[in-house]
């Protein structure tokens, strides 16, 4: 029965030693250790959260980039289309104005040809009249001495000449 009879001396020593151990370890060991462990765990959790956040941000940025790229391509297409349209319009206008110019030039050329023609005609008339007169004069000079009938004929010719 000695075995299950607690002895006072050992009870006192065990109490004293354990309480001192509890005090020393509690104050100088468990507290800093547990604090350090908590801090480390907090750091890990924070880091994981930060990584998660960063990843999500990266995804956002990527999505933004893609969106911007898409927009840029649309914009480019639009600009190209507009440029094409503008080019077409310019070509069309140029063609139109060139046509008009050509027609105007043709018209003015026709005009001037007409004028030249009539002037040439008038000149030709005058010239032929002059030539006729000169011929007539030469004939008359020869025939005047001949007969009156011939005079009358000359007069008639002259009258006819006026027609043209």
């Amino acid at each position: 029965m000695d075995l299950v009879k607690p002895e006072l001396g050992l009870i006192i020593w065990a109490t004293v030693v354990f309480l001192i151990l509890l005090f020393i370890l509690g104050k100088y060991a468990w507290k800093p250790i547990l604090n350090a462990l908590n801090e480390r765990e907090k750091k890990i959790t924070d880091s994981l959260e930060l990584a998660d956040l960063t990843r999500r941000e990266m995804e956002n940025i990527k999505a933004d980039n893609e969106k911007m790229l898409k927009e840029a391509s649309i914009e480019r297409d639009k600009i190209l289309k507009e440029a094409k349209e503008m080019r077409d319009a310019i070509v069309a206008t140029a063609k139109k104005s060139a046509d008009e110019e050509g027609r105007r030039m043709i018209a003015s050329a026709k005009d001037s040809i007409e004028k030249e023609k009539s002037a040439a005609m008038a000149e030709l008339k005058n010239l032929s009249a002059t030539i006729g007169v000169e011929i007539a004069e030469k004939i008359l000079r020869k025939k005047l001495e001949s007969n009156p009938e011939q005079d009358a004929l000359i007069a008639d010719y002259i009258n006819h000449l006026n027609l043209n």
Binding site: G9, W13, A14, V17, L25, Y28, A29
Partner: peptide
């Protein structure tokens, strides 16, 4: 209130424990 075998062994154990744990701390 003697330092019996158990008390001495306990003190030795506690000393080792203190060294190990305080070193880690």
């Amino acid at each position: 209130l003697s330092i019996t075998k158990n008390v001495a062994s306990m003190l030795l154990g506690v000393l080792l424990l203190l060294i190990a744990v305080l070193y880690s701390a």
